[in-house]
């Protein structure tokens, strides 16, 4: 196989068709959709982020970078940054740790491998908003069975009022959905660790725990790092449904992530300039994360 980077192999001599017009026709659908639904709105976001609109949307005024200054100086926004970091890191760590644990177990068994895999991968297909609803249903204070059990055990459980408990609930729901994905990648990574290395260590008397941390874990580090980036992106963007379904950003903004705030400020509070400025900041974050990921992908090709 050739490289995984998007540009690998462009120098390759390739037999081509000599048509002049056809390639443009072939490209037309995708380019048209990309321009209308991507470049146009993205440039609108950039433009809007420098405007200040009155609440009725009647007049707008060019204010330069003032929206950005306002957003970055807003304690609510900074709180939202903090919430996003706590949420993303917790979700990624929880989902990856559980998945790695299960994947190492799956490596050991001989019988039932296929069965376990099937049973572990299907939460991937559950929509985030539905996942959120299910967890909320189990843990909501008025009729959730688990909330009932927690209360019977004397624990004060109310995620609708307590910010930390709300955060815990969205993290668990978000991580639950992501286990399948991480599990598949960890299984693939573990299979690529050479058996001979592990056997040699076993002959030297290294315990299975020691073998894991000194040989297996360092060898699967590239996958771990890749998953860290993917899980972070997931926690940033794909969890909007979970948060909207479980907490709606509350209580008292305790679970208001950056994406949720873009939505909330733009569609609920109708602060168009501020919301657009936040969009632009988010775009910058995504581009940075993607760049990190691509750098890593190049290394990985080298490694494999």
């Amino acid at each position: 196989m050739d490289g995984r980077t998007p540009f690998a192999g462009t120098a390759l001599q390739k037999a081509v068709f000599p048509n002049k017009l056809l390639p443009y026709l072939l490209l037309a659908p995708q380019v048209a959709i990309t321009i209308v639904f991507f470049y146009w709105p993205a440039s609108q976001a950039l433009y809007q982020s420098m405007l200040k609109e009155d609440p009725f949307g009647l007049k707008s005024q060019f204010v330069g970078l003032r929206n950005f200054a306002q957003v970055l100086g807003d304690p609510d926004y900074l709180n939202s940054v903090k919430v996003t970091i706590v949420f993303s890191v917790s979700t990624a760590v929880l989902a990856m740790a559980l998945a790695l644990f299960l994947a190492t177990a799956a490596e050991k068994v001989v019988r039932g491998k296929g069965f376990y895999r099937t049973m572990l991968i299907w939460p991937y297909a559950v929509a985030p908003a539905v996942a959120g609803l299910l967890w909320l249903f189990m843990f909501n204070p008025s009729m959730g069975t688990f909330a009932y059990l927690l209360r019977s055990a004397g624990y004060r459980w109310n995620p609708l009022l307590d910010g930390d408990q709300a955060m815990l609930l969205v993290v668990v729901a978000a991580a639950w959905k992501q286990i399948s994905y991480n599990f598949l990648f960890f299984v693939a990574a573990l299979q690529s660790v050479p058996r001979s290395l592990i056997e040699a260590a076993a002959i030297d008397g290294a315990s299975s725990t020691k073998r894991f941390w000194t040989i297996v874990f360092p060898l699967i580090a590239p996958t771990t790092f890749f998953l860290l980036v993917v899980n972070t992106v997931y926690a940033f963007f794909d969890t909007f449904g979970i948060i909207d379904a479980v907490t709606g950003g509350g209580p008292a903004q305790a679970t208001q992530t950056l994406v949720y705030k873009v939505y909330n400020d733009g569609f609920v509070n109708l602060d168009l300039g501020g919301s657009a400025a936040q969009s632009v900041i988010l775009m910058a974050i995504v581009i940075a994360l993607t760049a990190v990921q691509f750098r890593y992908v190049e290394k990985r090709v080298h490694y494999a």
Binding site: F38, W40, P41, Y263, S279, V286
Partner: peptide, 28 residues
């Protein structure tokens, strides 16, 4: 499978969209 003027420009035009999920540009 074709070589034509502006080929790489088009490729880049499409490639850049890889990075930005719809969530970050919802309002516009």
């Amino acid at each position: 499978f074709f070589r034509f003027p502006l080929r790489m420009l088009f490729f880049w035009l499409i490639f850049v969209t890889l990075m930005l999920p719809v969530e970050v540009r919802i309002l516009p």
